[in-house]
């Protein structure tokens, strides 16, 4: 990784969901559960709405990792969300493979609306993995 300014933690883009995982990430802040400030969140309506090209865009333009904070079974838009999110993960990983990008730079976990601690744990361990693998 080039640059390495003030903060050299890995840069992670999180796709959160407006009704489920984003409130959990908000609550992590409320509870002052710290995680690296190089984790940035873009909230979207549902985790099965993420286009693979957005993920690729982020990874190719300089993000070290992309984390999908998925709705899981709590999705307000219905039960099919988990299957659809898994499918877009599969498609994206296939695309990453074809481009020779480490598929482990894309990670997904279901984050429920009160799963603040699991979220912080996930991004921390993801950051750890990314900093190891980039050196």
């Amino acid at each position: 990784m080039e640059g390495g300014k003030v903060n050299n933690s890995p840069k992670i883009l999180v796709f959160s969901t407006e009704k489920i995982s984003d409130p959990a990430i908000d609550m992590a802040g409320l509870l002052k559960l710290h995680y690296p400030p190089t984790v940035y969140t873009i909230p979207i309506p549902c985790s099965s709405a993420i286009k693979p090209r957005w993920i690729l865009h982020a990874l190719e333009r300089g993000f070290d990792g992309v984390f999908i904070a998925a709705d899981g079974t709590d999705c307000p838009y219905g039960e099919s969300c988990t299957v659809k999110t898994a499918e877009l993960m599969r498609v994206t990983q296939q695309m990453l493979k074809e481009k020779g990008i480490d598929t482990a730079r894309l990670k997904m976990a279901a984050i429920c609306s009160v799963c603040s601690e699991p979220f912080v744990k996930h991004v921390k361990s993801f950051a750890e993995y990314l900093s190891k693998s980039s050196n």
Partner: peptide, 11 residues
Amino acid sequence: VESMIDALIPN
């Protein structure tokens, strides 16, 4: 989305 990602891009 992509313009937001571009603005967030590290460094």
